[in-house]
Write a protein that binds this DNA or RNA. Sequence first.
RNA 1: GCCUCAGUGGCUCAGCCGGUAGAGCGAUGCCUUGGUAAGGCAUAGGUCGGGGGUUCGAAUCCCCCCUGAGGCUCCA
Length: 608
Amino acid sequence: MRLLLIHSDYIKYKTKSKTKIAENIEDKKKEMQFQNSLVVFTAVEEKDEENPEELVENAKKEIIKVFSQVGADNIVIYPYAHLSSSLSSPDRAKNILQSMKEILTAEGFNVERVPFGWYKSFEISCKGHPLSELSRNIQVDRVIKEKSEEEPSKFHILSEGKLYDPDTFKYESSDLKKLAAYELGNLESSGEEPPHVKIMREKDLADYEPAADVGHLRWYPKGRLIRDLLADYVYNLVTERGAMPVETPIMYDLDDDAIRVHAEKFGERQYRMGTKNKKLMLRYACCFGAFNILSDTFLTWKNLPLAIYELSTYSFRLEKRGEVVGLKRLRGFTMPDMHTVCADVEQSLQEFDSQIDMCAQTGVDLEINYEAIMRVTADFLEENEAWVLQSAKKVGKPVLLEILPKRKHYWICKMDFAAIDYLGRPIENPTIQIDVESGERFDITYMGPDEKELTPIIIHCSPTGSIERVIGSLLENSAIKSAEIPPMFPVWLSPTQIRILPIAERHLDYSLKLAEEFKSKKIRVDVDDRQETVGKKIRTAAGDWVPYVLVVGDKEMESNQVMVNIRKTQEKLLMDKEDIISRIQKESQSMPFRGLPLSLKLSGRVQF
RNA sequence: GCCUCAGUGGCUCAGCCGGUAGAGCGAUGCCUUGGUAAGGCAUAGGUCGGGGGUUCGAAUCCCCCCUGAGGCUCCA
């Protein structure tokens, strides 16, 4: 907020005509005059909207300070937009100016507020003494959360329906032990860079985009392919369970009350933007669009549970700069987000159970080990203890249980699944949350069996977590396992599934024919037609993590068999073409397929 | 955002108590037509992250900024 304070002998003003944003005023306010007044020309700025109460309080103190120094009789608050180039919305400005008047009046001052939104003529006589002209920039000090006042959560390990102390529990899974150590703040850090950052660049998957903001990536064809396959995978997974795909905008109007309240809970981490007349935020999840669809849809109890799904390409979070790293924490990311409307808590618990199964399945399909944390409020646990114990069992191994003494957020129960990275730190992937606030806030209702309007419970679920984190986890996994087995993607995600290496130029035509055959069987295949030695080509294929490498020479051209290097097992086998096709088909069974978005011949490729 | 460290050809790095840049990989060309993790020779490619300063002279010393990494803090 910008203030220009003038100690005046008199000020008089006269309203001329209304602007679009003019407030309605009584006739006597159309023309007024004040003697010996401190005139406070005021511009309310955009950033002032974040914490208006404290702002008004700070402005009050400053005005009183000047007022008492100059010895005026009146305070005149005069809206004056020209003091700032980034103004708040007119509505909010009016409210803030009115609050200033009220709070100063309550302190016993004579305060007048000049009408807002009118073209006015005014005449002022400045006293001209040293303190008669002052400007002030009123700011709100960042509110520091009194963390110590909050009662801390309690952590347990929940195994076979019994609670154990995480410090003394005998862990079978070292990953769970690491997760517990991290959550309890006992993890000592090694100070290294997570290996996936280097790998994502080396493998031409993705890189930082220097011309964007920090934490926004460019994706190269291989990375894009993996993203698309993962997107297809989640799409199939949720639509098979009955979720309906939708797509919603990436930006929302902050003048919408529900949006603003929901957004304010997220605090500093939003991207804000605007047009001439609107202040907008970029979405940090699909909630806004999903809730507005659900709010505008007529639902009855027979429809429930009902799920809509969106892949948010992109969601935006203004994460702190020092925290943005690789694929693990980004400012622009892709999140599969499903919202399920449930009639009541009971139905939400049934649905939650089935979503646990779905999330656990993604760990199997993606070949990532997840460890689970169940987080509940104390009240929720008390009312649903049997359910909590039974649901935790569905994970199939011990889980970490956090009990929050009070509900802090919109959820009463959530389950997070985390992969553990090379450095032993969790990457939070799938999540399920029971939301008891948003139904009401976004005016989502359904008609109950007795024709009464009811407010549902909503479950948020991301079956895999962000696509970028999934890829990050896969790369971390490969780094962890690389001591024992050669690093690679699951076959269905491998950009190249089969690479054919012709030994000499005379084997090229046959190799290309072979490639066409594989291609027609929905296998991603390429041919290393470069003028290099077999040794060199083998090395390149290994660097590209190709799961099956076929060497084609004179012998192969005379038979139906090919010499296959199998990356996973390090075997070198003579196989029939049909066998290798069925082997890959079996490994990729029921997983999505997309063709190779790169030239078939390696000689035609570019390096990114 | 704060603290610490770093930024040199497309990539990985050397040079850094000042004397105006060097290697390997990759790329390109030629030779080699090869049977399982780098065949040989040659060539091109850098205003040393950006700006300012000190100096006869700065990749090298000083200041500011940008970018990256780690830590702190945070993750509804």
